[in-house]
Structures are given as structure tokens and as C-alpha cells.
Amino acid sequence: MAAIQSDNHGLRLFVRYAVLTLIAVIFIFPLIFMLMSSLKPDQQLLTDTESLRAFLPVGDISLDNYFAAFRRAPVGLFVFNSVLVTGLTVLLSLAVCSLAAFAFVFIDWRGRELLLTLILATLIVPFETIAIPLLLISANLPWIGLEGITRGWLNSYQVQIVPFIADGLTIFLFVQYFKDLPGELIEAARVEGASWGQVYRKVVMPLAGPVLATAAILKFLAMYNQYLWPLMVVQQEAYRPVMVGLQYFFQLNRAWGEIMAYLSLITVPVLAFYLFLQRAFIASIASTGIKG
């Protein structure tokens, strides 16, 4: 009996690994293709796509495409812009949205249900529908900078950051997580003399690691992949992010090797960020049932 059970267990394990390996391969092959292609000249790259050689570092391998990509576009500047815009938006978003969710869940005030419903309703509004009004508003907003008060946010970092700090999805994630925290912890802190600010800083946020990781990753991906909005509001190269920078490679002579090199370069920050937070991200999905 024990032997049969152990055989079954071995078989189940084998099937499980086989399925997981297949899924991993499906997800990782495009990345391998991108990396391998970035090392090959265009001619070979195109012929290799007819065979499995496309996924192997064979033939005329070099870093020439990377040098060419740097010559064609200011890759460093674009990556810097994207990391700056994305990083600041993520940090500000976590702070603002968690505070909003805290007020919605823990503090009793008139109209909170209605306001939360309205915020959640924004989840079903596609960005494209508000893009033009947002553009018109942004073009006329005042800003206090080193040059004093100026009007119009176009061609700036703030126009890429501020509109995305507060969003329904991030608030929703925090609200759901906070609702699952035991209410007695909050009440105990209040009885012990903690102000709402201290409850937020000393009790709620230290327990919010998993949802912070989830919200950070989702926000990071959304912001890093921004294309339409920066295309509309940024005309100057100095503020251009990576996705808009891709245009530099779709000129008359399309250089696929350079495109792959550029894509490989701009993928690095995303992978690094995900790997940094993946443990907490997976824990969060497992515990709250939120799908990434």
C-alpha cells in the first residue's frame, strides 16, 4: 500500500513539474529570443527565426547591436527618465493610496461609502477616454519651480507623475487588505493612546508588507509601460521615457537587432524590481487572492 502511494506521489510530482516547466518555457522563450537576437546581425537574426537557432547563441555573436542602440538613441537618459518617473510615482502612490484606504476602512466619517464607490467606479473608465481632457487640464496647470510660477505642465516630469499618484486600483488593493486586518489591533492601539497617525505608522503599515509589494509591482509595471500619455505630453527628448524612445528604432531602415538590444536593456529594471519584491508579491497573492 505504502509503495503504491509513493509511486502515485512520484507520478503526481512528475506531472506537476512537467506542467510548470512547460508554462515557464512559454513565458521565458520570448525573453530568450529577445536576448539572443540582440546579439546577432539582422541578416542572421531573420534566417534564424525559421529554426530553433533563434533561441541559441550561435553564429555571428557580438555586442554590436548594443553599441549601435546607444548611438541611435540616448538609452541611458530614457532609462533614467523612466526609472525616475516610475520610482517617484510608485512611492507617492503607496503613501497617498494607503492613507486614503486607511481613512476609508478605519475612520468613521460621513460619506465614506459613497466616495469609495465613486473611486472604485473609476476602475471601469479606460484611460483613453480621459486622456484628452487630462491633456487640456495639464497644459494649463500652474507649477512652482526654480523659475517661479509657470503655467502648463507639458514637457516635464510632473506631468508624467502627478496624474497617476492616486488611482482606484491601488486604493482598492489597500482597502481590501486593511479590511482583513483584525479590528481589535486598531482598537487596542487606540486604547493605548495612539493617534490615527500613530496607528497608521506603527500598527497598520508595518503589517502591510504584502499589499505594499503587490501594489508597488502593479504600479511599477503600469508606469514603466506608459506609452500613450508621455507621447501626448512630452515632446522634448530630455523628459522622454523608454517606451516612447522605441520610436527611434522604427525609422525607414528598421534594425531588428538594435531593437532587441534596446528592449533587453529596458527590461533590466523591471526584472530587477520584480525579483526584489517577488517573495512578498507571491505571499500577498496567496493570502489575499488578488491576481497580479
Partner: peptide, 18 residues
Amino acid sequence: PKDRSIAMVFQSYAIFPH
């Protein structure tokens, strides 16, 4: 609560896990 000179012990203990 903090100004009432009380301390409370809850059913679920409510001790801070972190």
C-alpha cells in the same frame, strides 16, 4: 479612549504581531 484612564484586554488578545 486614551484620556479615560482605562486599559483593555481583548478576546483575540490583539497583541501586535510585528
